[in-house]
């Protein structure tokens, strides 16, 4: 099983992913109960350490922790060490002294959860680091596809958008490949990273080719501020060329599903009529996020007790 931390899908074995998905599938039922809470993590403390604001992910972890009866503490802090006297590692050491049973870390810079995990006793769960990984997002996407399609092996998954800057893309590439799917990425050449093929994917700039025969079409959120970085000339041209609509979906399989990590820029990544209902499964993704994060917390949260104080 995943040893101590969940820093990225790259580190996981297929059997680890299967174990998490299976546990998550069981966790889903708890959300349908009159009392949506189990006592499993009673007396344990989970810290949400968010250096970058993200209400959606933080709330999802918070609900997940609370459904397992953990005490969830939100610790939001400014984005950069430069604006404070304290380095990120100092923050981590301070936190560790409070003996949390799990620390959920989000940071705009790749590698920060790893550095924090290096100094922390508690398990660290990466809730998104820069353009590196967002493992729980990919796991909930895998859960959604698995339940939607009954399998992942042999599917064709096309990820469209700013692959360069997307942690969701990287985690999903690793995840779907490990689970036996074929993964394609597509976008304007300025948004396809150097050496992306080394990750095991095929890269496309033609939507027709990228979507041909796809079972899963995953659009990434376009950061509109990237316009100033000259990655693309205009929102209109992006939407026209790489936006998903019923017209472009004709290239994919008839029963293809549409996914998006949210929040959707309507009319940009997805046409208006696609965002809310089938073949879009975006709301299932959100719902599955809580169960998936419950599974991860169930499997990971806990710290070694000091010797002599063990039961």
């Amino acid at each position: 099983m995943i040893a101590t931390d969940l820093l990225g899908i790259e580190d996981l074995e297929r059997s680890d992913i299967e174990q998490i998905l299976e546990a998550a599938a069981h966790m889903q039922e708890i959300g349908d109960r009159p009392v949506k809470k189990v006592p499993t993590l009673r007396g344990r403390t989970i810290v949400n350490l968010f250096f970058e604001p993200s209400t959606r992910t933080r709330t999802s972890f918070e609900i997940a922790g609370k459904r397992l009866s953990a005490d969830v503490v939100n610790f939001s802090t400014s984005s950069s060490s430069l604006s404070k006297a304290e380095s990120i590692l100092d923050t981590a050491r301070t936190l560790d002294a409070m003996q949390p049973d799990a620390v959920v870390v989000r940071h705009r810079v790749a590698g920060v959860p790893k550095r924090i995990a290096d100094v922390l006793d508690a398990p660290v769960i990466n809730a998104g680091d820069g353009a590196h990984e967002h493992p729980t997002q990919a796991l909930l996407d895998l859960l959604t596809v698995w339940q939607e399609k009954g399998r992942i092996d042999g599917l064709t998954v096309t990820i469209i958008g700013d692959i360069v800057h997307s942690r969701v893309a990287r985690s999903n590439i690793y995840g779907f490949l490990k689970m036996g799917a074929e993964v394609r990425v597509a976008g304007p050449p300025t948004m396809l990273p150097v050496g992306v093929q080394a990750l095991g994917v095929k890269a496309f700039t033609s939507m027709r080719e990228a979507l041909d025969g796809a079972d899963v079409v995953m659009a990434l959120r376009i950061q509109l501020e990237r316009l100033s970085g000259s990655l693309f000339p205009s929102i209109r041209e992006y939407a026209e060329t790489f936006g998903i609509s019923r017209r472009t979906l004709r290239y994919a399989k008839d029963d293809a599903i549409v996914m998006h990590p949210g929040p959707v820029n309507r009319g940009v990544e997805l046409s208006h009529d696609l965002a809310d209902h089938r073949p879009s499964v975006i709301l299932d993704q959100v719902r599955n996020g809580v169960a998936l994060r419950m599974a991860v917390l169930y499997l990971l949260a806990g710290r070694e007790r000091v010797a002599g104080r063990t039961e």
């Binding site: 299976e22 069981h26 039922e29 499993t40 397992l68 806990g302 070694e304």
Partner: peptide
Amino acid sequence: LDTTLYRDDLLARGARPRLRRTE
């Protein structure tokens, strides 16, 4: 009714028992 999440012997750290179906 799976009782795993209600057990009183969850280890501090280490392998977790596999969850079972609740219906």
